[in-house]
């Protein structure tokens, strides 16, 4: 089950009076993969937090035409409980929802195996590499089968190789599970590789400056990263971003 959502003239001014977001309106279709792209400080993460309900908008609202969706959230840091094993970290959403412990554990193990971490189920976060920790974080976000997966620059701190591996894994999971994906990034290439649609935010306070579609079909293999279509779209986005900052 996937959910569409509607951002209706969303605006946010922080408590200290700093305006963060101007009027953002967009419809995000069920099961789509959308990238929110823009320079640092343009309010991308704020949009994500408003969608997640972690912050309240000052103006406008987030609408869920087909009912409030179950959400998964991946932060920029893995945000793991340092004292708990990978399995216990992943089973957290199920534990909090009151699922029986054996079921939660079994589903957590399956989620870890999906991300290639079956052998590290009992490892503590400090025993894992940065990329592995991020995989645990993704497994946790997906374990309760969310309708919408929100990701806030999840791979920004990782090396290029790990990052592209995780991008491929993410697309594979999206194809399998069919959730609606909203991915915040400041990497043009990541946005183009992952998304069907790229919303470009810019300015202070942040506003929507472009809404681009990426028609390239999935699965997108490694070759796509070096294709003409990829480069043309990246070029177009870079031009838009140039215009915003200039």
């Amino acid at each position: 089950m996937t959910h569409e959502l509607q951002l209706d003239r969303l605006g946010k001014t922080f408590q200290n009076g700093t305006p963060a977001l101007d009027e953002i309106s967009a419809h995000i279709g069920a099961g789509s993969f959308v990238a929110l792209l823009g320079p640092s400080g343009c309010g991308k993460s704020t949009v994500l937090r408003l969608i997640a309900g972690l912050d309240e908008p000052t103006r406008g609202r987030v609408l869920w035409p087909s009912g409030r969706a179950a959400l998964g959230f991946v932060f920029q840091d893995p945000t793991l409980m340092a004292w708990a094993s990978a399995t216990r970290n992943v089973s957290l959403p199920l534990d909090l929802a009151g699922r029986p412990a054996p079921e939660a554990r079994a589903r957590a193990l399956t989620a870890l195996e999906k991300l290639g971490l079956g052998a590290f189920a009992e490892s503590l976060p400090r025993e894992l590499s940065g990329g592995m920790r991020m995989r645990v974080s993704i497994a946790r976000a997906l374990v309760a089968s969310p309708d919408v997966l929100l990701m806030d620059e999840p791979f920004a701190a990782l090396d290029e190789f790990t990052r592209s591996r995780l991008n491929e894994d993410l697309l594979r999971l999206w194809a399998e599970r069919g959730f609606t994906g909203i991915f915040v990034t400041h990497s043009v290439f990541e946005a183009v590789y992952l998304a069907q649609r790229i919303l470009i935010l810019g300015g202070r306070p942040g506003r929507l400056v472009a809404d681009l579609t990426n028609p390239a079909p999935y699965p997108r293999g490694r070759d796509y990263r070096t294709s003409a279509g990829f480069n043309a779209l990246a070029r177009e986005i870079l031009d838009v971003l140039e215009g915003v900052s200039g």
């Binding site: 309900g53 959230f73 945000t79 409980m81 957290l92």
Partner: peptide, 10 residues
């Protein structure tokens, strides 16, 4: 962030 995560899962 963990605090937010706990809020997200109510």
């Amino acid at each position: 962030n963990l605090r937010d995560l706990f809020r997200l899962y109510r």
